[in-house]
């Protein structure tokens, strides 16, 4: 069941340029705008990221692409409900949890394509990687957890609202949580109320740990993984309750 849903969703994305291109281009664009335009920030007193500003921004954009890969898949779920396909799927599925699993697999496949392109571009423009192979596996696994949490969040929303008009409800909270993490500078250099918000933002742990892993100086990795897993568990419940809501709606 999950395999069938995943294959169909991925096939739709890969054969439709209007779905594929934005998910590839937007992360590259943000990477270019942040790493290219703001590289002088490495000269700000107190900025001491050893791998340089390109690597510093790469981690944020990689995690952002993972989160939005999940959200974009959520758009597809809402579209399936609008077209009536998801209702037929609910009728035909022997195990409906497999539907959610299939969408999650598709989100993972979709993000892996984006991550490959983004990583290749980052390496081509000379990004410094200080971390070992194990550190890098740790970084990409963190991103994978975020991708899974985001698709489960979006699936829960899509299955409750069952319309594309719910797109902003899926996207906006993810956007806010991501951008209230330390995007441009490390947490210690954030100032004012944004520093307070970022300190308690669960994404901050993941972003900071990801940067530590890329530079070969892992920090708070356990806490970041615990946060990622907690988000996955929380949004799994959210998605499954959304599935029940869709079942009740018929």
């Amino acid at each position: 069941m999950a395999q069938g849903v995943a294959w169909r969703t991925l096939h739709n994305v890969l054969t439709n340029p209007s779905l594929l291109i934005p998910s590839l281009v937007f992360p590259l664009f943000f990477f270019t705008a942040f790493a290219g335009g703001l590289s002088n920030i490495r000269n700000v007193p107190g900025f001491d990221f050893p791998s340089g500003y390109t690597a510093f921004q790469f981690v944020f954009v990689l995690l952002q692409s993972a989160a939005f890969g999940g959200v974009f898949t959520g758009f597809g779920i809402a579209r399936d409900f609008e077209s009536g396909f998801a209702r037929r799927l609910l009728l035909a599925a022997p195990n409906r949890v497999g539907i959610v699993g299939g969408y999650a697999l598709a989100a993972l496949g979709r993000w892996l394509i984006t991550a490959t392109v983004l990583t290749t571009v980052a390496l081509l423009v000379g990004m410094n990687v200080g971390g070992s192979g194990v550190d890098l596996v740790g970084l990409y696994t963190l991103a994978l957890l975020l991708n899974l949490a985001a698709v489960l969040w979006s699936a829960g929303v899509a299955m409750r609202f069952r319309t594309m008009q719910a797109g902003p409800v899926m996207q906006f909270p993810v956007f806010v949580v991501l951008f209230f993490a330390p995007v441009y500078v490390p947490l210690a250099l954030l100032q004012g109320w944004v520093h307070g918000v970022a300190t308690y933002n669960p994404l901050t742990r993941i972003v900071e740990a990801g940067r530590g892993l890329l530079s070969g100086d892992p920090t708070e990795v356990g806490l970041a993984y615990a946060t990622g897993l907690a988000l996955v568990v929380l949004f799994s419940l959210w998605a499954l309750r959304g599935l029940r809501s869709a079942e009740r709606a018929g």
């Binding site: 703001l38 002088n40 920030i41 000269n43 700000v44 007193p45 107190g46 900025f47 806010v176 951008f179 209230f180 330390p182 995007v183 441009y184 500078v185 250099l189 954030l190 100032q191 004012g192 109320w193 944004v194 520093h195 918000v197 970022a198």
Partner: peptide, 17 residues
Amino acid sequence: MLLLAVNSGGLKAETNL
């Protein structure tokens, strides 16, 4: 306004350049 809030906190350090 949201972008202003995010950037003004996140990029405040830039004023030290």
